[in-house]
Design a protein around this nucleic acid. Structure first.
Length: 709
DNA sequence: CATAGCCGCCTTTTT
DNA sequence: GGCGGCTATG
């Protein structure tokens, strides 16, 4: 590696980069140059004679993988190292060892919508009531089990209560459907790979022998299955390098287990630990805010946040009347930043839930400020895109029943529910796939001749498409689009159809890019790749515009100017997290806010609205408890603000609301204090009412009275 | 069998 | 305020 490059590193960074053998844990705070350390480390390893082929680096998103490849390349590390996400790695492993994993190598990857259809089918097959067994809940529970590598059988063995037993059956039924469809869901990719490595010594030794060095980024967000995969991949050479920051763990709800990083030294007893505590990104003022906030979390590995930059501007906290005013002010401030010579690319707006983007979009459109919503998978959720992709999926994997059902009568070709049901029944009896039954429809006695004829036409059409399945993806997609009748039906659909047509041509353009760039282009590979597309992957640094994204999507990025909007109780922390009286979930929300704050390089604007429209109704909001925790470390802009103006005058003695105290509220009745954040006149109190619900209230509005026993 | 219209559920975050 | 699923109608 170039000497000047290594001289640019701090001593700690250098320690991590040039660590040679044995397990290594890099606890890296925000802005500590972690990405740089990893890429330098890859380059240094190659420099010392390690073949790129023997290196496996695992990132959190495809985007991050792509960036890492680029950067390693510029450092002189020749291509050839395996750099990808866990999921992409799993796809490759499962495809290669499909027979050993008991799978068809042409498997489809089911996304959330596909999974939902399957689980509904499974619930229905068991003749359960969907209201008592909500598909989404079941799916969630199954996902949790898979993340822990618990299969349906072993879960059933330990299921003691009625709900668990039923869940076990749904799980088994769901899994059965997936396997009949030659399909896997996201969790299966991890679970099947982990199980394959665990139970198949040849595969494990082959891969762990190959990967002399295993590097895993964002280790704080790995789940048990990912932990197991990493452990097994590194089992032979013991050269595992994990990097991450427990304070930035924000995917607990998805099975991420912060204990993986907390217990790294226990799992790898001879581990070297390097802490990167210096922050080269943000101003000292921004870091002070971040540090103060995160210090309210109790379950953490203590880590300092050392600023290397001057204080800079104050962090601004602004209260707005409603989300409209909030959004308009953001738009105006964006314009001001640009007038002062700022660049749109350096500005980002973060929010907790996607629905918040609407108000911002409207304001930015009115102000004619170009913006981009970083939400990649949304595109692939559109009906026209899903329809076209379903045709392509059938060509690769005819067992994919979800895809088949989607297109068999789209566009309408006279194959209705009755016909499909009859074919299905036949497939069930003959124990063949639905597609196979469709191809044999001539033999199905229950079908009228008209239906048989229509099915034959459909089968013939698919057969024609299949002939082109080996060629370029874009050309095939184009032909399928026009010959299937999809193009025609969209063309007849007016203005909406025009938008849909544009989307389809965007998809085809993307496919053409794929044809050009992929190492070994194939329809299968293309489909599997886009299945693993993520929101963050949509981030396009080249277009000159403001970026709008959720706080989750912001992870790993940095911007000169950051706006975090809607910092209110119920939103941040989100009600689904704070209402559960679960301190751990509240801490995760705090970490999420921490991640957002630490994305800012120079200027940070935090805001909340006093009223917010939630599902059509304007509701009074309560500022987030996190803001009170920040106290005076943020400067409040109170010019239009009557909310706090009288703060100091109304500083009356606050009665003692300690946890456990019985209180009465005019509307909610009797309750018990759960938590009390004493911030003088702005104190926030959390009360569990006898109705069963827990509410966070601002003391000065709540009008609570203490009940003496 | 196709379509329009209504109802209900939903919405936290995502690989 | 949206989508998907269901139902009634043509």
């Amino acid at each position: 590696m170039d000497d000047t490059l290594s001289r640019q590193l701090t001593p700690s960074q250098r320690k991590a980069v040039f660590h040679t053998e044995g397990p290594l844990l890099v606890i890296a705070g925000p802005g500590s140059g972690k990405t740089r350390v990893i890429t330098h480390r890859i380059a240094a390893l190659i420099d010392s004679g390690v073949r790129p082929y023997n290196i496996c680096a695992i990132t959190f998103t495809n985007k991050a993988a792509e960036e890492m490849r680029q950067r390693a390349f510029t450092l002189g590390a020749s291509a050839g190292a395996h750099i990808s996400t866990f999921h992409s790695l799993c796809v490759r492993i499962l495809r290669r060892y499909a027979d050993k994993a008991g799978m068809n190598a042409n498997f489809s990857i089911y996304d959330q919508a596909d999974q939902l259809r399957c689980i509904k089918q499974a619930v229905k097959d068991l003749q359960l009531d969907a209201t008592n067994f909500p598909p989404a809940r079941m799916l969630d529970a199954i996902s949790t089990l898979k993340n822990k590598l618990t299969d349906a059988e072993s879960f059933k063995a330990e299921a003691y209560d009625f709900f668990s037993r039923t869940l076990a059956e749904v799980y088994a039924g769901y899994q059965n459907l997936l396997s009949r469809h030659d399909s896997v869901d996201f969790d299966d990719l991890l679970m099947k790979t982990a199980v394959l490595l665990r139970d198949c010594p040849e595969v494990c030794s082959e891969l762990s022998d190959r990967f002399r060095f295993v590097l895993i980024d964002e280790y704080q967000d790995t789940n048990y299955a990912q932990f197991k995969i990493a452990e097994l991949l590194a089992s032979q050479h013991n050269n595992i390098c994990a990097t991450g920051d427990p304070d930035q763990s924000i995917y607990r709800w998805r099975g991420a287990d912060i204990r993986n990083i907390m217990a790294f030294e226990r799992d790898w007893p001879d581990a070297t630990v390097v802490k990167l505590e210096e922050n080269f990104r943000s101003t000292a003022n921004i870091l002070a805010v971040a540090d103060k906030l995160i210090s309210f979390n109790s379950n953490r590995k203590h880590k300092r946040l050392i600023a290397t930059k001057p204080p800079g501007e104050d962090v601004a906290l602004t209260a707005f009347e409603d989300e409209r005013e909030e959004a308009e002010t953001v738009a105006r401030q964006v314009e001001e930043l640009v007038e002062r010579g700022g660049c749109l690319n350096d500005i980002a707006v973060f929010y907790r839930v996607n629905a918040q983007s609407r108000a911002l979009e409207e304001a930015l459109v009115r102000a004619r400020v170009p913006y981009q919503i970083v939400r990649g998978i949304e595109f692939y959720r559109r009906k026209e895109i899903r329809d076209l992709l379903a045709y392509l999926k059938i060509l690769v994997n005819p067992s994919d029943e979800i895809a088949l059902l989607r297109i068999i009568n789209t566009p309408a070709r006279g194959i209705g529910k009755t016909t499909v049901d009859r074919v299905r029944a036949y497939a069930e009896r003959a124990n063949i796939s639905l597609f196979e039954a469709v191809t044999k429809s001539g033999r199905i006695e229950t079908l009228p001749n008209a239906a048989k004829a229509k099915l034959a036409v459909f089968v013939n059409m698919i057969g024609q498409f299949a002939k082109g399945a080996e060629g370029e993806v874009a050309a095939l997609a184009e032909r399928v689009f026009s010959d299937s009748g999809l193009a025609e039906s969209l063309g007849a659909a007016g203005a909406d159809g025009q938008v849909a047509l544009e989307n389809v041509s965007e998809l085809i353009n993307g496919a053409a890019d794929y044809d050009k760039l992929a190492e070994q282009p194939s329809l299968l590979d293309y489909l599997q790749q886009i299945s693993l597309f993520s929101d963050a992957d949509a981030y396009d640094a080249n277009s000159e515009c403001v970026r709008l994204m959720t706080l989750h999507a912001a992870k790993g990025l940095e911007f000169e100017n950051v706006f975090i909007v809607g910092v209110e109780e119920g939103l941040l922390p989100h009600e689904r997290s704070s209402a559960t009286e679960n301190e751990e979930e509240l801490e995760e929300e705090r970490r999420l806010f921490f991640v957002g704050i630490t994305r800012a390089i120079a200027r940070l604007h935090i805001s909340y609205a006093r009223y917010r429209t939630v599902r059509g109704r304007g509701l009074r909001t309560i500022p987030s408890q996190f803001l009170f925790e920040l106290g005076r470390d943020v400067t409040e802009q109170t010019e239009e603000d009557d909310y706090y103006d009288d703060e100091d005058q109304t500083q009356e003695a606050v009665p003692d609301f300690s946890p456990g105290q019985l209180v009465r509220h005019d509307a909610f009745g009797l309750g018990r204090v759960e938590k009390f954040v004493d911030m003088g006149a702005n104190s926030v109190i959390s009360v569990r009412f006898n109705s069963g619900q827990t509410k966070s209230l601002m003391l000065k509005f709540a009008n609570l009275s203490i009940v003496d026993i």
